[in-house]
Design a protein around this nucleic acid. Structure first.
Lengths: 253, 253
DNA sequence: CGCGGGGTCCACCGATCGGTGGATGCGAAG
DNA sequence: CTTCGCATCCACCGATCGGTGGACCCCGCG
């Protein structure tokens, strides 16, 4: 019997998934939470009788979000991020096969048997590399996209409950490609970012200099550094490229 | 007995919603579709015995999308957008009250009794003004956000099946505010947009002129017109402002 | 101590940009 | 026919931009 905690900020979607899971004889939903915080609070208060084996975690939620909640759960820190005992879960090995099912986790110690650290099955709407990579780093045991068939969700829940790590083939392929060719994301200094942000607002170099109480040539120097790092040769392209890299936000979005 | 067609591109979410709806004694799900096209195909082929009263339509889907599918359904055009008989549904009245429930649709003619045009209940993840306004224009009868409680979904399905128009309070408030203060969105000509797009890619005026085989002064003239319309005084701000207005996309997003 | 990173600053110069004030032609609508 | 919107084009000019090749200072780390 696999016991599941479902974490999703959309009540209708959550109710739907709960209903779906409970049609499966081997699965019972022991709780629901609408946020990462609520999930941690549930775990902090849960008794062994309703302790989950799997936390089905939506990645995109307001508050601390799915990644941070995953990190806390994987460390057994249920009172909130950044507190509690050190993590007892091993780091993930390198992936090489599509839909790999990895060996079970090591046997828990006697003190963990009543409330063993649950596996986190991360559930995403989109195949977002950054968030999924972050979830890996945070210690998640399973990764599934919402576009997967319902049967795959059932199988994934049961596999994670059994202590295994599962990975949707599409996500596996992306991670493998990512590890082969890591994206070199440019690192701008705080000052460079600040100046580029003012450029995006339409300020000229003299205007930026006046606002920051520095010399215009200093502004130009910073911008030239920005151009080098972003591999561009004009301010406009620097701004759009910084947006592509997520360094600048599209204002109003 | 309200019969529902559920349209959502995510199988797990769709299965969950189907399960949720069928827990309600007065609701039966007569079909599922993963896209607007599939929904139209279902309706084109459906017999009166499994004809839906309500189409629960996700707004964000690949292909023709929820808005376009809503338009076709509201016109009774099930073979695809832009074909079939003229619409028999009246346009929506102006909204003034939160969660209004409007009078039932006019009585269908004898020829429509077997397969009356179903009400479309639009179901959105976010409260997206543009898409919801488009759905109103397209003839939808109901609007609900996924953040709403499950009970509200059940109530909305039954109201739409009864021929009423329902509107989540949050969406009603936004639409009322929108009608009071319509956003003046600048209208760029196709050429202006094209040139601004090249500016966003980092091309200089001479480079744009060469690419479009026009004079550089022509490029400048277009850009000056763009600056006037967007109320900016430099190309960089024109680009970011155009992104804020949704005229340009953030490349890579 | 030296080194690297970050921030500040300069002069010079050619290229580009943005503003001004025009001009023409074409097609569609009234 | 006129008017409007769109696209095309020009010369002139001052301001700004981007590149070059420097300079200096401070701080943290080994």
């Amino acid at each position: 019997m696999s016991r599941v905690l479902v974490v999703d900020d959309h009540p209708i979607v959550r109710a739907g998934i709960v209903g779906l899971l409970e049609t499966e004889a081997g699965i019972t939903v022991v709780g629901e939470a609408e946020s990462g915080e609520a999930a941690l609070a549930f775990l902090a208060a849960a008794e062994p009788a309703n302790w989950p084996d799997v936390v089905l975690m939506d990645l995109r939620m307001p508050g601390i979000g799915g990644v941070e909640a995953t990190r806390s759960i994987s460390r057994g820190e249920y009172s909130g991020p950044g507190s509690g005992p050190a993590s007892l879960r091993p780091r993930l090995p390198l992936f090489t096969d599509p839909f790999p099912v990895y060996p079970p986790r090591s046997e828990p110690s006697a003190s963990e048997l009543a409330r063993p650290i649950p596996g986190v099955l991360v559930f995403t709407t989109y195949e977002e590399d950054e968030q999924i990579l972050a979830a890996i780093e945070a210690g998640a045991s399973g990764y599934l996209v919402k576009a997967a068939p319902a049967a795959e969700l059932i199988a994934a829940v049961e596999a994670v409950a059994a202590g295994q790590t599962v990975l949707a083939p599409s996500i596996a392929a992306q991670l493998v490609a990512r590890m082969r060719e890591p994206i070199m994301r440019p690192r701008l200094t705080p000052r460079e970012t600040e100046i580029l942000s003012l450029v995006a607002q339409g300020l000229s170099n003299p205007e930026i200099a006046a606002q920051l109480v520095i010399g215009e040539s200093t502004v130009k120097t910073h911008l030239l550094h920005v151009f080098e790092k972003l591999d561009v040769s004009d301010r406009t392209r620097a701004v759009t490229r910084a947006m592509e890299f997520g360094i600048l936000n599209s204002a109003g979005f």
